[in-house]
Simulated scan of single mutants.
Amino acid sequence: MITGRTIGAAVTLLLIAASYWAAYDHGRIVERAGWEARWAERDSQDSAATAAAQAAARHEEQRRQAAQEEARNEARTKQKAAYDDAAGADAAGQRLRDEAAKLAGSVSCPGPNTAAVMFWNGK
């Protein structure tokens, strides 16, 4: 039969086991909270570093796009100047051809001197 002493010892043992379990569980909760705080800090630092890297990448991309746009504008300006120069040269060339045609039409060249040609050929 179970005596009061056995019941008292069982309750005492149960209380001791419960207190050990409570101490263990409290330690586990405190340790988990410490790790969660460290992980939260690390996650926060990672997020800040990611945001900074993304901002730097956006800034670099904008700088590159601005440089490309500047190069495009400069190329367009040079291309327009080259087209204008080409049009001016074409017009000047046409004027020269017209003048050459006028001169050729107005000048009459005498025929070749046959005596000079014969002398030159050694005949």
Rank of each mutant, 00 (worst) to 15 (best):
A67D: 09
G34K: 07
A75W: 15
S108D: 12
E31S: 06
A81Q: 11
N113S: 12
I16D: 02
Q65M: 13
L15R: 10
D84Q: 15
R28H: 08
W21A: 15
K102L: 12
T114P: 01
I2M: 06
G105T: 08
L103T: 10
E60W: 02
N113V: 03
G88E: 14
D84C: 05
A17C: 10
L15T: 14
A57D: 00
A53F: 01
I29F: 01
Q54M: 04
S19D: 04
T77H: 12
A75Q: 13
S47G: 09
P112T: 05
R38E: 12
A87L: 15
Q54H: 06
V107M: 10
D84G: 02
A116L: 13
A18S: 11
Y20G: 07
A18P: 01
T6C: 05
A17S: 12
W39D: 10
P112A: 07
Q65P: 03
D98N: 12
V11I: 14
L15M: 13
F119T: 12
F119Y: 12
L14N: 10
A87C: 05
K123H: 11
T3F: 04
L15H: 04
L13C: 15
A75F: 14
R5W: 04
R32Q: 15
L96W: 03
V11R: 07
V30W: 01
A89W: 12
A17N: 08
Y20H: 08
G8Y: 04
P112I: 08
R5Q: 14
L103M: 13
S19G: 08
A49N: 13
D84N: 14
R95S: 13
D46R: 13
T12N: 09
W35Y: 11
S106D: 14
R97L: 09
Y24D: 12
G27Y: 05
A22W: 03
A82C: 01
K80F: 15
W39P: 02
S47F: 05
A55R: 04
D25R: 03
E60S: 11
A23H: 04
A33C: 02
R5V: 05
I7D: 08
W21P: 02
R58A: 01
Q94V: 03
S108P: 00
Q68M: 13
A56W: 03
K78I: 14
R64T: 05
T77N: 10
Y83C: 00
Q62I: 02
E99H: 06
R42S: 08
Q54F: 01
H59G: 06
A75S: 11
A89D: 09
R76L: 13
A57G: 02
E31V: 02
R42W: 06
P110C: 00
R97V: 04
A9L: 15
G122C: 01
A49H: 06
